[in-house]
Design a protein around this nucleic acid. Structure first.
Lengths: 229, 229
DNA sequence: ATTTCTTAGTGTTAATTTTACAATATGGTT
DNA sequence: AACCATATTGTAAAATTAACACTAAGAAAT
């Protein structure tokens, strides 16, 4: 109803795997639809593409419409085209992953959704359609990407401690990292700016805060330099 | 005409970037269409998806139909959805890259194509639609993939010399490699089987032939081992 | 105010990997 | 027999990675 007037492309959809870092764990945003075919089941936010928007634009719009999430990092993952992945008719879907800092976005269900919540990535089995596969593929790509692009910072507040950053990397790649080696390596990239500011309200020694040097990163990318964690 | 009876999905296509290694260079397969909108221009082989085939199947069929190329390595690259990428109407295309050994496939234009030929990757500028972008993206992904997956072997005959293999890697990543270091590294993967056979018909010392150990590779993949060139 | 608790912060050494580099071997051609 | 082209092989220096444990700071508890 909300879309039919907008000239949507009914056999092409976008599904988004939105990752967030909460409670020191990697979590994923799921929504509940008001209507069939997946009424009242948790699923990836998704929707059909409009005739006059690009795929990226569709992903951005869908995230805003279903859960009030805006202005985020987006990366196309894969296009899923199994013949019967959608029961009613043939629908091919382009999967994206998105990264946000959950603190910065208050989830609000949209016109077509009854709920939007964060779930631990390990507790999402049993989603409708091929959403389990999509999440899995997005997770694999996130693990790849995070080692070669500084996308980890998208999941953190602007100011963060090195321990935060390390915990984030650990929760994405699923391995423990050595504290001293991690710090050496991440500082050597030159992409972190130490601030004259420290954690507050903690009952132990306060850690120094850092921020990501976006300017320097853009220069590096332009000059084809690369880094690796 | 050839397709309309087959229930095709008219807003979803597949385009294929077929790489081959010929004359010690990386080349790409282009075709010429009989009909508009790109009659008589060199372009990537592509076509619409049928209602009852997956995206991968569409890519396989299209390659066979347009140029008689069968049984090849395929990898999905990216889905291109700029609103006006196709002039007549909205068409989103899923791009694949494919790897073949040109010696193993004799190119034959299909029912809808007048010609199919190999081009050096640097000589393809000016293709219709967004095919230049697609080729570029495929090339970037090939360069990534070739370092982490043993896909280089897909481009060579079953039996090859280490110099062949090195030249192939060099032409893909666009850098000169040290001969001794390359050999050490590639042999250390354990994925090459030396044969008791040598080059023939060369007017200099004949090089030993090797083949790729597919069996061992499958075991490695299953056990999550990885390698890197 | 002393002790306790929790996390922050830091350097060195050994092991491994990467890089740089050149002489001899083989087989066909002249 | 000399020549030519490519094949084949090892070592040492440099760089990177991996392993590892103590002191510092600040709040909370006694």
């Amino acid at each position: 109803m909300s879309h039919t007037a907008k000239n949507l492309i009914s056999n092409l959809s976008v599904d988004c795997v939105v990752f967030g870092f909460r409670n020191n764990r990697l979590e994923v945003l799921l929504i509940k639809r008001k209507r069939n075919p997946i009424k009242e089941r948790w699923a990836l936010p998704g929707g059909f593409i409009l005739a006059d928007e690009t795929l990226d634009d569709a992903a951005i719009r869908i995230l805003e419409e279903t859960s009030n999430v805006k202005n985020i990092y987006l990366e196309q993952v894969h296009t899923f085209g199994a013949v019967n992945r959608f029961p009613a008719r043939r629908v091919v879907t382009v999967a994206y992953f998105a990264l946000i800092d959950p603190e910065k976005h208050s989830l609000k269900p949209g016109i077509d959704t009854t709920d939007a919540q964060w779930f631990n990535v390990t507790e999402t089995k049993g989603m409708p359609f091929d959403h389990d596969d999509i999440l899995n593929k997005a997770l694999i790509q996130l693990r790849q990407s995070v080692r070669f692009k500084p996308i980890g910072f998208e999941l953190l507040p602007i100011k963060f401690t090195l321990t935060h950053l390390q915990t984030l990397y650990e929760s994405i790649i699923g391995m423990h990292l050595d504290k001293r080696n991690f710090r050496k390596k991440i500082l050597k990239t030159g992409l972190l700016i130490p601030l004259e500011e420290f954690q507050k309200g903690v009952s132990h020694r306060a850690a120094q805060l850092y921020k990501f040097d976006l300017h320097k990163y853009k220069k590096l990318v332009k000059n084809d330099y690369s880094f690796q964690i």
